[in-house]
Structure formats: C-alpha cells, structure tokens
C-alpha cells in the first residue's frame, strides 16, 4: 500500500477511532494517546496486512484490541475508574431550552458510559462511527443477530433510563 493511500485512510479514520477510544476509555488524554499508538501500530504492521479483511476492519480490530489492552492496564494502575471527562456542551441561542438540553445530554452521557463494554462498543461503532451492523459484526467476529441484540439492549437501557429520570415524555 503506497504512503499516499495510507495517509488518506488515516485521515478518513482518525476521528472515528479517536471517538471510539474516547467513549471506551472515558478520558480525553488517554483517548488521544491510544489513537496515536493505534495508528503507529497500523503503520508498523502494514506489511502483515494481507487483504484478508478490508483495511478499515483491520484498523478497527487493532483499535479495539489496543483500547481493551489500555483499559485493563489503566484499571490495574489506578485500581479504580477515573472520573468521566468533562462534557463540553455548546450553548444554544434559546436560554430556557439550553438548561433542559444540557441536563438531557449530561444524563445521556452518563447512561452511555454505564453501558456494558459489549453494548458500548456496538453502540459507539453504530452511532459515532456510522458503521452498518454487518461491518460491526465482521469487526467483532460475531453474528449479525448478536450485534443487533447488543444494540437493542443498549437502546432499551437508554430509553428506560431517560424514562425513569423523566427526561423524555411519551404521549399516552
């Protein structure tokens, strides 16, 4: 693979992998480091990429392995979960709805953080990385049904939590 094509692929995938790392590791600096290390790994091992899988699938596999490696390493070092990173919410024009929206989004942030790792990786790949279920299934080496049910349970959890906290109202 020539270096121009490689650079292009990295350009395309950098933010996506960063978001995946950010959501899984819940820490901005760690995510930044992880993303750098992941892409260095991709570059170093580019010769062992044998076109058996697509390039993006290969990158995502490396990324997930590295993220899990980092999270176990970090939890061993800290022996506890670090605080969730600060939410940087952009202010809206309308001040009355701003507070509501901020509250809603902060809660959503917490709910997404509370998902199980399996549910979260599917959720993040689906929404943040905009991958189709089929691709997610290939990356995780799972059946598409399993991936879909992980996604469903994640959404169910989000829905129930929003409902419990009265952040969403449904018409009777």
């Amino acid at each position: 693979m020539d270096s121009i094509r490689l650079n292009q692929l990295i350009e395309e995938n950098y933010q996506k992998i960063f978001l995946l790392a950010l959501k899984m590791l819940k820490n901005y600096e760690d995510a930044e480091d992880a993303t750098q290390e992941i892409f260095l790994k991709v570059y170093e091992n580019i010769n062992s990429f044998r076109q058996e899988a697509k390039f993006t699938t290969w990158i995502y596999r490396i990324a997930l392995n590295h993220i899990y490696y980092m999270s176990t390493k970090r939890s061993r070092e800290l022996n506890q979960f670090p605080e969730a990173y600060e939410l940087r919410t952009e202010m809206n024009e309308n001040p009355s709805s701003v507070l509501q929206e901020k509250e809603l989004f902060e809660s959503l942030e917490k709910i997404i953080d509370s998902l199980s790792p399996r549910q979260k990786e599917v959720f993040v790949m689906r929404y943040y990385n905009q991958l189709p279920f089929k691709k997610i299934a290939t990356i995780l080496k799972k059946k598409i049904g399993t991936v879909k049910s992980n996604y469903f349970f994640a959404m169910q959890k989000i829905k129930n939590n929003l409902q419990d906290q009265n952040l969403i109202e449904f018409q009777e």
């Binding site: 978001l19 952009e90 809603l104 989004f105 929404y127 989000i158 829905k159």
Partner: peptide, 24 residues
C-alpha cells in the same frame, strides 16, 4: 422509539461536533 432515536442522534451529532480529531 422514534423519539429516543432522535434524541440520541442529536446528542451524538453534538458530541461528534465538539470532539474533532486531535492534531495528528
């Protein structure tokens, strides 16, 4: 479900917007 998906999508759009790719 539509409502839940909409809210989630809004949140994620904003979240992606405020987390651009770090310099690389």
């Amino acid at each position: 479900w539509k409502k839940v998906l909409n809210i989630t999508q809004q949140f994620i759009d904003q979240d992606i917007k405020i987390h651009p790719a770090p310099p690389h």
